[in-house]
């Protein structure tokens, strides 16, 4: 028996919009810890890890660990039928091949049940060890999205370099090149507008912009994005989900042949 009630149902709608283009099918895992997902894109270049902690739900019942294979496009279609203010409850049962999404309006005067078919998904779960990153950049998520979009119109790859001077985003394409430097900036009243750079060592890595631009679909979930970089490791682009958990995107670098 599974019953997860989320007052701020819009969070789940935003999560689906953020990942459905990167990953088409995935297993959602439900345990005492929370509702989670780990999945790679079809080319195994990027990985998304989602956690919505049980404490963040208004009601959380999960009698035993359950894995639900879901087509994310279909789930997104169903969640789009929920109003922006609706409360969403996810209901499931052991041994059934469906999951139900219940949408309640704030005034409780409209209740909708959407039943969706589950599928068997043979997915590989990867162990991601904790790593010490050479540099961690925290910046406004909208600013990062803007940079990725702008650079994506010029080139296919971005070189992200962190030095004492700041974080530099560079691309080159047929029409020319672009270089954007963001300096550390903490002298603002709103901490979410700051750019903070923690650097142990300078680092420079190259990534495909197509994936970076896909990650920025999570911008609506958090005002701040954290970018963790180490040479020889995938970059981690993390959006915290208020009070509940996170979406982390891992992207393998492009390396010199």
């Amino acid at each position: 028996m599974l019953e997860l009630r989320l007052i701020q149902g819009s969070l789940l709608k935003k999560v689906l919009e953020a990942i459905k283009d990167l990953v088409t099918e995935a297993n959602f895992d439900c345990s005492a810890t929370g509702f989670s997902l780990q999945a790679m894109d079809s080319s195994h270049v990027a990985l998304v890890a989602l956690l919505l902690r049980s404490e963040g739900f208004d009601h959380y019942r999960c009698d035993r660990n359950l894995s639900m294979g879901i087509n994310l496009n279909n789930m997104s279609k169903m969640l789009r039928c929920a109003g922006p203010e609706d409360i969403i409850t996810i209901k499931g049962d052991d041994g059934t091949d469906t999951v139900t999404f219940m949408f309640e309006s704030q005034k409780q005067d409209k209740i909708s049940d959407f039943e969706m078919k589950l599928m068997d998904i043979d997915s590989e779960h990867l162990g991601i060890p904790d790593a010490e990153y050479q540099a961690i950049v925290r910046m406004p998520s909208a600013e990062f999205a803007r940079i990725c979009k702008d650079l994506g119109s010029i080139g296919d790859t971005v070189v992200i370099s962190v030095t004492k001077e700041g974080v530099k985003f560079f691309t080159r394409g047929d029409v020319g090149s672009a270089n954007i430097v963001c300096r550390q900036n903490t002298s603002v009243d709103k901490p979410e507008d700051s750019t903070v750079i923690e650097m142990n060592e300078p680092v420079s890595l190259t990534f495909a912009l197509r994936y970076m631009n896909s990650f920025t679909k999570a911008t609506t979930l958090s005002e701040v994005v954290t970018i963790s970089l180490s040479s020889e490791l995938p970059v981690v682009v993390e959006y915290k989900i208020a009070e509940m958990g996170y979406i982390r995107f891992y992207l393998a670098p492009k390396i010199e042949d």
Partner: peptide, 14 residues
């Protein structure tokens, strides 16, 4: 020329 690494080259099945 740069080659695209894959996630599975860094993280192993758990």
């Amino acid at each position: 020329n740069r080659i695209q690494m894959s996630i599975t080259q860094f993280y192993r099945s758990s």
